[in-house]
Design a protein around this nucleic acid. Structure first.
Length: 433
RNA sequence: GGGGAGGUAGCGAAGCGGUCAAACGCAACAGACUGUAAAUCUGUCGCCCCUCGGGCUUCGAAGGUUCGAAUCCUUCCCUCCCCA
């Protein structure tokens, strides 16, 4: 089963480049994998308290690795995070405070833990490079590691080109050293855990090759690198952003409903690729879905499956179920009045809410225009009025154009709330108490 | 140091004494169409208010001229370009 890993990754379009040890007699990666389980690692930068959908690809690759019988190491960069990876970054990173870094590390570790299996014969490992980089003495580092790096070569890297060319950018000595640290990580993992393969995104190619080279120079041993292509969108915009910003894996930062919606809104042109990259679905199943996209794009079956699969991986079955329910109500015209109080509660769990006193119903205080403004759906009563006139405000799913409309007890749904909507996607729940 | 251009609403860009809350383009928001898409068409778009009506605060900053200034004058701040 071990040999299947590379084939599977290739079939899914997850192989960008492979770094083979450049030494006669040493096996290629495919050959090495065929010989038996390998230990491989992927590093995660603690630049934020949560990982985002871009990192999800890397996480899933660790899982694919483990499922194929190999041993994954998730490395969090508590040490390198103090420095900042300059690869393909336009400008110098602002340094994280140590407190911030500690918080980020804790958040990321918790997320990674959910995906990997830390038991069994190929139990995953989670390590923090602060534990070995922190102890490295400067002079030793310069002699043992630095000596093996050619500045001439480092300067020619695409990853830092941006920073070397523009006068207005520049790169500090600190960030320039980053590649050496990451290379040393690989050496350390090789020594301490028999790690022979480093994986990562295509932006990590240079750093990974540095590690492979360093292991060869210092240990005269083979090591391999494997990068995945950058996830792109067919319309050229950046992957991993929604209207509201980054799509995070942390449910508190990106609600499961929003997460589900992010995937559901995938372009037809991208959905098949994403199914390959972000799910564990069989290739045959994905081929079926690809055919469905051709045949009946409007049904968006592939998008539905993608959204459900990924949401389940990240947030679990029940979060997916409620995201689906909410989506059905919100976008597929399910009549709000047919839902039970519990279902309503579920469907709008993520919607912002405010409250209105029951006694206020029927009074000027319950004027639609006033309530819309108070709810923050529009910034002022004047704006709210315009919105109502334009027909963009709906009460319980029905467009309401009357500016003098006042909410009354007949508008209160089971469970005691009124659902307001602006446009197609912005909801607000007014709880009547 | 010398010479030149300029700072207008989220951005770009007109306006150069009254009819300017300020053309136009983009972005944004909404409506129609649709697949919760793209494209297209339409509306809104300084802020606030109970209307097609009204109020308030804007055109780098501060003063001034004038019945009246984004538009004229003075000083200051900032940006860009060219030459040294």
């Amino acid at each position: 089963m071990s040999a299947d890993l590379l084939k599977d990754l290739e079939a899914r379009g997850l192989v960008h480049r492979i770094a083979e040890p450049s030494h006669a007699g040493w096996p290629g990666l495919a050959e090495r994998l065929a010989q038996g389980p390998i230990t491989a690692y992927i590093g995660f930068d603690p630049t934020a308290a949560s990982l985002h959908v871009g990192s999800l690809l890397q996480i899933l690759n660790l899982v694919r690795l483990q499922r194929a019988g190999h041993r994954p190491i998730a490395l969090v960069g508590g040490g390198t995070g103090l420095i900042g990876d300059p690869s393909f970054k336009a400008s110098e990173r602002s340094m994280l405070s140590k407190d911030q870094l500690a918080a980020n590390l804790a958040g990321i570790r918790a997320q990674l833990e959910r995906f990997l299996d830390f038991s069994g014969s190929n139990a995953a490992l989670m390590l923090d490079n602060a534990s070995w980089l922190g102890e490295f003495r400067l002079l030793d580092f310069l002699r043992d590691v630095g000596k093996h790096f050619s500045v001439n070569q480092m300067v020619s890297r695409d990853a830092v080109k941006l920073r070397l060319e523009g006068r207005d950018h520049g790169i500090s000595y600190t960030e320039f050293s980053y590649a050496l640290l990451q290379a040393w990580d690989f050496v350390h993992l090789h020594d301490a855990h028999g790690c022979e393969l480093q994986m990562g995104g295509s932006d990590q190619w240079g750093n990974i090759v540095d590690g492979v080279d360093l292991i060869r120079r210092l240990r005269q041993k083979p090591a391999w690198g494997l990068t995945a292509p950058l996830v792109t969108k067919s319309d050229g915009s950046k992957f991993g952003k929604s209207e509201t910003g980054n799509v995070w894996l942390d449910a508190a930062l990106t609600r499961p409903f929003a997460f589900y919606q992010f995937w559901l809104n995938t372009d037809d042109a991208d959905v098949v690729r994403y199914l390959h990259s972000f799910t564990f679905l069989e290739l045959a199943r994905i081929a079926e879905l690809a055919a469905a996209v051709e045949r009946e794009p409007a049904r968006r079956e592939a998008q539905r499956v993608l959204a459900a699969e990924v949401t389940t991986l990240v947030h679990g079955e029940s979060a997916t179920a409620s995201a689906r329910r909410a989506s059905a109500v919100l976008f597929e015209g399910a009549d709000l009045r047919t839902l039970s109080a519990g279902e309503l509660q579920d469907a709008f769990a993520d919607a912002p809410r405010s409250s209105l006193a029951r006694e206020a119903l029927g009074t000027p205080q319950a004027q639609l225009v006033a309530v819309v403004a108070a709810a923050g759906l529009e910034p002022s009563k004047g704006r709210a009025r315009q919105a109502v006139e334009q027909g963009s405000i709906a009460v319980n799913g029905h467009a309401e154009k009357a500016v003098d409309r006042v909410l009354g007890s007949a508008d209160v749904l089971p469970g005691g709330f009124v659902v307001l909507r602006r446009g197609k996607k912005t909801y607000h729940v007014v709880a009547v108490a």
